[in-house]
Design a protein around this nucleic acid. Structure first.
Lengths: 223, 223
DNA sequence: CCCTGTGAATTTGTTCACAGCT
DNA sequence: AGCTGTGAACAAATTCACAGGG
């Protein structure tokens, strides 16, 4: 099985390659990609072993071909629809954020328990009642959910999502969701991340001490 | 040096212990904390070796004392102020999100380049002009920044932040910031996270295959 | 030459397993 | 008995280092 870290980086490579294609770049070296994401060239080459494509020796990777290979690997062509639950400040911000994400991965419905926002259309996305969640999810074959409800409601909503057939959840609530093993949960916890930055802004700078062997990355992600 | 993963989990333990204290729980076992965060008891005990506190044998950890020890370790008492740059949808949502974060870590100023929102007060936080960024950061001794500007502006704003003395950045722009080694960057890339969920919602469920040895966690985080 | 792909080494993170305490 | 702290084993992820190719 292929590691989550590698998947994250493949998603980054795809994004960079898309930009390069627009800029009419035709070939790229592993060390150039490495520079872009703040990693080593060896790391890039190791990651790219996962996709079915090999570089043209001594000329690097052909941008178009590599892009297709990564897209194929990540199943870009498989259409996937997502729903969002919790139309608060964060939910709304994310709806506009995701509006311009890739065509094969769209947020098609929003849900909230507050009657005030039901019927509203936010960023082209209709806001519906929680009662309709199960029916809509099944009818539209939605497999992914973005969860932006208050912490207290998260577990219960999570349960309902799984019941409705969702098997991937992007959870913004600061709660460890209890879900079956078949469901993938990705947590984004902005408060925790801010606290982590606070910690490392004081205790950071590893690279200053000890053996400075090579260029130090000093980058992190949420995951 | 202490690993980022451990720091993340310590932040979670703190949050859970705070809740327990409110609920008047006085002792807690490592396996109970483990359950809460979806990890193993051994992991919890290993993490807690970092802080200066030992359990009462056979009775577990004393909630109050452990909480103090973790807080001390994470320097809860050291006041830290943060600023936010980029008062768009996401920036505003985060300002209200952080409003009720811990008292020792507050967002005290917001900045945007758009004159329309300058002077506005959002969630108790004044919105100022980018021109004042350096002066305010220095005057208020701000060391942390939340970056919610469009991708195209992120690198330039990042540079200015570092110039102003910021040494920790929580970056929401889908860009790899180039900063000195002394600056800690934590990335939250919501689009990438959604794409990752999309991937694993199809290719997930590791636990179904091979040797299922013990309870599988099936949780992830942004970083 | 300067690149890639990859086995081997290394580093980092997690889990096992058990002595020691109450 | 049932817990913790921790050395030792293990697993995962990254980096080294080098053969092979245009």
């Amino acid at each position: 099985m292929i590691s989550p870290q590698t998947i994250e980086r493949l998603i980054l490579y795809r994004r960079i390659l898309e930009r390069m294609r627009q800029e009419r770049v035709s070939y790229v070296y592993s060390h150039e990609l490495a520079k872009e994401i703040g990693a080593t060239a060896a790391q890039v080459r190791r990651d790219l072993m996962a996709v079915e494509y090999m570089a043209v020796a001594a000329r690097g990777y052909q941008v178009d071909a590599l892009l297709s290979a990564i897209a194929l690997f990540l199943d870009e062509d498989t259409e996937q629809r997502a729903l969002l639950v919790g139309v608060g400040h964060l939910g709304r911000a994310l709806l506009s954020h995701f509006r311009y994400s890739r065509a094969s991965l769209q947020v098609v419905a929003a849900f909230d328990q507050d009657p005030a926002c039901i019927g509203e259309v936010i960023e082209g996305c209709p806001c519906l009642s929680m009662d309709e969640l199960g029916a809509i999810a099944q009818y539209k074959q939605i497999t992914i959910a973005v969860l932006t409800v208050p912490a207290a409601a998260a577990q219960e909503v999570g349960r309902r999502l799984v019941e409705a057939g969702v098997c991937g959840i992007l959870n913004f609530a600061p709660v460890t969701l209890q879900v079956p093993d078949s469901v993938w949960v990705e947590n984004i916890d902005v408060t925790r991340s801010l606290e982590k930055v606070a910690y490392y802004s004081r205790h950071g700078d590893v690279s200053a001490s000890g053996t400075v062997k090579e260029k130090s990355p000093r980058k992190r992600n949420g995951n």
